[in-house]
Amino acid sequence: MNTRARYISDPTTCAYDPSKEKSLLCRADGGSATDADCITAGEARTINAMWYGQTADGSSADPATLAGLSDRLAPGQLWFGLTRT
């Protein structure tokens, strides 16, 4: 990521997973964030689901697979998710 310009240079290689970002997760969900802006584990899963795209059963793949950025739908995927920007 180009932090100065606040752009992700190549979002197709971005596998960022908020559910593993301890500094953002609330303490009740295993994180270290104590302020009101902390995210819950459920919110982190929802963010990942938005990036992955709609699925028939509501599940989403591990961001490490980058399945949401393919130009072909994965099994069970109804449509493409949002690009990580």
Binding site: A5, Y7, I8, S9, D10, P11, T12, D71, T83, T85
Partner: peptide, 8 residues
């Protein structure tokens, strides 16, 4: 080919 871009 599909190439990632910094901007939308």
């Amino acid at each position: 080919d599909t190439i990632g871009l910094a901007t939308p």
